[in-house]
């Protein structure tokens, strides 16, 4: 199996876990990419929900992290689109609003978890680890 195959194929125990990060804020994408790469993940970023769904159509991921409030389709619909393509994909939704409604709707739509901004990196790392394990 070549490296290219591994990246395009299904999750592999030996391969680095792949994270998809979705946020309309460029700096946020950069931080999360740097952070997860430094923690040993392979990271792809999408600056919109539409782009994330596009990426998911052509590749597979072990976990996705999406912002809730974005122009175009929001986090909830991104979550729904991603899980339509890959029903087992754990999706973590980052909400800015302290709204129970939003959180409940995300959970109903199959979110792995919801966390509120500002995100604590250690908490996020633990959550992503748990999500990857849950997928396995």
């Amino acid at each position: 199996m070549t490296a290219v195959d591994a990246a395009g194929g299904a999750a592999d125990a030996c391969a680095l876990p792949r994270v998809l990060v979705v946020d309309d804020e460029r700096d946020m994408l950069e931080i999360l990419q740097d952070f997860f790469e430094s923690e040993g993940y392979t990271v792809q970023v999408a600056d919109s929900g539409e782009r994330a769904i596009e990426l998911c159509r052509h590749g597979s991921f072990d976990v996705a992290i999406t912002d809730m409030r974005m122009p175009g389709i929001d986090g909830l619909h991104t979550l729904m689109g991603l899980r339509q393509l890959d029903p087992r994909l754990p999706v973590i939704v980052v909400t800015g609003y302290a709204s129970d409604d939003t959180e409940q709707r995300c959970r109903n739509a199959g979110a792995f978890d919801c966390i509120q901004k500002p995100v604590d990196l250690d908490t996020l790392l633990r959550l992503v680890g748990a999500a990857v394990q849950a997928r396995d």
């Binding site: 804020e25 946020m28 409030r69 901004k117 604590d120 990196l121």
Partner: peptide, 17 residues
């Protein structure tokens, strides 16, 4: 507060990194 949330989050995460 919504507008402040992102920049504050970015500053904090950068410092943490």
């Amino acid at each position: 507060s919504h507008e402040l949330n992102n920049p504050v989050a970015i500053i904090r995460m950068s410092a943490q990194m």
